[in-house]
């Protein structure tokens, strides 16, 4: 496997001015500024091979975008070393840009007023794509998605789904070695999500493009990634196969219940009855996290329905947020 991205112990610090409250505070800030340092990325090392799809996960503000910006060469790491395709991105931003494609969630990089095909032609010139390569890529696109209705539509008139699709196609157009996708399925409906996942998967397979995917949607991760990297507060929490993670968390299900009576009162009683499970409540649901290796959800349910009047119930797989929270609390690696 050829290594395409190598990150050695990178750190990124930002100097953020302290803001004081109130009018007096603002006036104070005007004359004397004090700063504190934020470690947006704190000692991260990753090695990524050509053709991998890596899910890059973490809560908001974890440092995902900062890492991507550093890999894209728009941000210089405070310390540490990054090599993308053998060169240092920050020192060769334009050369590096030739080898990468970027889709930043809801910020379309296409020319707003132009039909998609005109945007493609401009990109063809900017990236100096040969006619043969361009035609081949367009033929590939035609075989994967129905792009004809999109080609002659100005980006401004597209739906969010069509725009995201267009942005992804534009990012792959110059056959980059790496594509960064930042929350590509955010705000899309189920069928569009599926379409976009299939598209990414196929492009990765046909072109052997490395894909770095940041997302909050576990569905994206399940459909696309074999490997995931999780960071939080700038620190790396996890870097391994998704199978490994699933084995660990696969046994967990969340049983959500609505019962008669005050939910928080009832939750306390349930917690006392089920020492194996962790129970919490909000205004709508009582959530019971069940480890099926120890106790089946069905048996929990039958036990509870004897003594509680259950009005409604839902069964949920453990969410990515829960996984991350658990990793953060417990430490799996």
């Amino acid at each position: 496997m050829d290594e395409i991205i190598r990150i050695n112990h990178i750190t990124k610090e930002f100097r953020v001015p302290d803001r004081h409250e109130g009018l007096r505070g603002s006036i104070r800030d005007l004359f004397s500024r004090s700063y504190h340092t934020v470690h947006a990325v704190d000692d991260i090392s990753i090695s990524i091979a050509q053709g991998e799809i890596v899910g890059y996960l973490g809560p908001n503000g974890a440092g995902k975008s900062t890492t991507i910006k550093m890999m894209a060469g728009v941000l210089e790491p405070t310390s540490g070393e990054i090599l993308v395709n053998g060169c240092v991105p920050y020192k060769n931003r334009t050369r590096n840009a030739q080898n990468i494609g970027v889709v930043f969630g809801q910020r379309s990089q296409l020319w707003w007023a132009l039909p998609l095909v005109e945007s493609f032609r401009l990109l063809k010139d900017i990236y100096q794509i040969t006619d043969a390569q361009y035609d081949e890529m367009l033929a590939l696109y035609r075989s994967l998605v129905d792009i004809e209705p999109l080609l002659h539509k100005p980006v401004r008139q597209m739906s969010l789904g069509q725009r995201t699709l267009s942005d992804i196609l534009a990012a792959f157009l110059h056959d980059p070695k790496i594509v960064f996708l930042d929350e590509p399925t955010i705000g899309l409906d189920v069928s569009m999500k599926a379409k976009i996942r299939t598209l990414i998967h196929e492009l990765n397979r046909r072109k052997n493009t490395t894909v770095i995917l940041t997302t909050h949607d576990m569905g994206d991760v399940d459909a696309l990634c074999r490997r995931i990297v999780i960071i939080d507060k700038g620190k790396m929490l996890y870097d391994n196969d998704i199978e490994h993670l699933k084995k660990f968390f696969g046994a967990y299900r969340t049983l959500k219940l609505r019962v008669k009576g005050d939910l928080s009162e009832q939750a306390k009683r349930i917690a006392a009855e089920l020492p194996e499970c962790s129970v919490s409540a909000n205004e709508n649901w009582i959530s019971v996290l069940v480890n099926e290796d120890k106790q089946k959800v069905i048996s929990v349910l039958s036990q509870l329905q004897k003594s509680y009047d259950i009005r409604d119930m839902q069964l949920e797989e453990i969410s990515s947020e829960d996984v991350i929270k658990r990793i953060y609390e417990g430490g799996v690696v």
């Binding site: 894209a72 334009t94 030739q98 930043f104």
Partner: peptide, 9 residues
């Protein structure tokens, strides 16, 4: 930020 990813000035 969206302008920063192209291989031109």
């Amino acid at each position: 930020i969206k302008y920063c990813f192209r291989p031109i000035n």
